[in-house]
Simulated assay, not measured.
Amino acid sequence: MGAAVRREVRAVLQVLLGAAVLHISLFSELYLRYVRKALRPYLVATGVLLVLIGLVSAVCVVRDLWRGGQHDDDHGHAHAHHGHAHGGSRIAWLLTLPVLGIFLIAPDALGAYTAQRSVDTTVKPAGAGGFPPLAATDPLPLRLADFDALALWDSNASLKGRRVELTGFATPKKDGGWYLARLTISCCAADAQTSKVEIRGVGAPPSGAWVRIVGIWQPDGPPGQGGALPVLAAQQLTGTSEPGDPYE
């Protein structure tokens, strides 16, 4: 009986975990708080597989229980083993709580807390100095990571005098002032990298608030050198809601 109970818990966990994966990837966009959009088909396939495995396991457990389960000839040993398994199964059932939490609680994406405790991780892109021409749009919408790369490494200073539009969340500087920040992921939230732009000319919104800013790049050093700082002289600040995909 103890073995059957353990298998039952395992089957329930597999079904619940698979259903949770399907819930966040197939019926909502919560998965974007964990992984990139391109991984959605793999999440759906994983969720379906987990549910199927759990259902097959559950059918096997029910079949064994219907046939009378497994018996131990040593009744004293069986009784002790049953008590141990029963206590272990109660603990195992607690493992369902985190899975159920996915259905009941929508987790927040990484944000200001992470960005405030990380350094600017903008790295020199491959072929830096040979950036493609920028569109003539005014203001020019840019990803925060792209703005950082251009500000730090574009030796042609193509941002000079251009009005750009950036979207991100506010995070305070340790020595006063604030950054506009955004997190970039290659695969999942665990590998998130932080892009930051120092904002000057407007007061800081509350930490974590999402805003859209129009402004002009203010170089603090010659482009193409690590001493150049990504700074934006803000002309306009507008509050906005968190994007469906919070990562770049």
Rank of each mutant, 00 (worst) to 15 (best):
P98G: 02
W66R: 15
P125Y: 10
A135L: 13
Y42H: 14
L183Y: 02
A112P: 07
G215Q: 03
L52P: 03
F147D: 03
H82I: 07
T96L: 11
V164K: 02
R6E: 07
L104V: 15
S25A: 15
T137E: 15
P107T: 04
V123L: 12
H86R: 14
S195R: 00
V62S: 07
G101N: 10
L104K: 02
T114H: 13
P246A: 04
L22N: 07
E198T: 04
K173N: 12
A170E: 01
H71V: 08
P206A: 14
P246I: 05
V56W: 14
G76L: 07
A109E: 08
S241W: 10
R163H: 11
R90T: 03
I53S: 10
D64A: 14
R63F: 05
R7W: 11
G54K: 07
L26C: 12
E8S: 14
V51D: 03
D138T: 14
Y34P: 03
A209T: 05
L232T: 04
C188Y: 00
T114K: 15
P222V: 14
G18W: 11
C187Q: 08
V5E: 04
R162L: 04
R33F: 09
K196C: 00
K160S: 11
L32M: 13
E165K: 15
I24P: 05
V119D: 12
G76Q: 12
L49I: 12
L55N: 05
R7A: 13
L142C: 08
D191L: 08
G176W: 08
Q218P: 01
G47W: 06
G2R: 15
E198P: 00
G201P: 01
L100G: 09
D72W: 15
G208C: 00
D120I: 00
C188H: 00
G83L: 14
R182Y: 01
H86L: 15
T121I: 09
K160T: 08
P222E: 14
K174E: 12
L237D: 04
A189N: 01
H84E: 10
V51N: 11
D146L: 13
L39M: 13
V51Y: 06
G130T: 09
C188A: 02
A192N: 01
G226N: 14
R6L: 15
P223M: 02
I91M: 08
L50R: 06
H84F: 13
L17I: 11
A234W: 15
G215Y: 03
V56S: 09
Q236G: 05
I24A: 13
S118Q: 12
G2Q: 13
K173V: 03
A4R: 13
G47D: 05
W217G: 01
I102R: 04
A151K: 00
L237Y: 10
P223E: 01
L134M: 07
A149C: 05
R7Y: 06
P223C: 02
T114D: 11
A112D: 08
R117W: 13
G88L: 11
S25C: 12
V21N: 06
E29N: 15
G2C: 11
D73F: 14
V5P: 04
A11R: 09
L43C: 12
G176C: 06
G76D: 14
P243Q: 10
G227W: 10
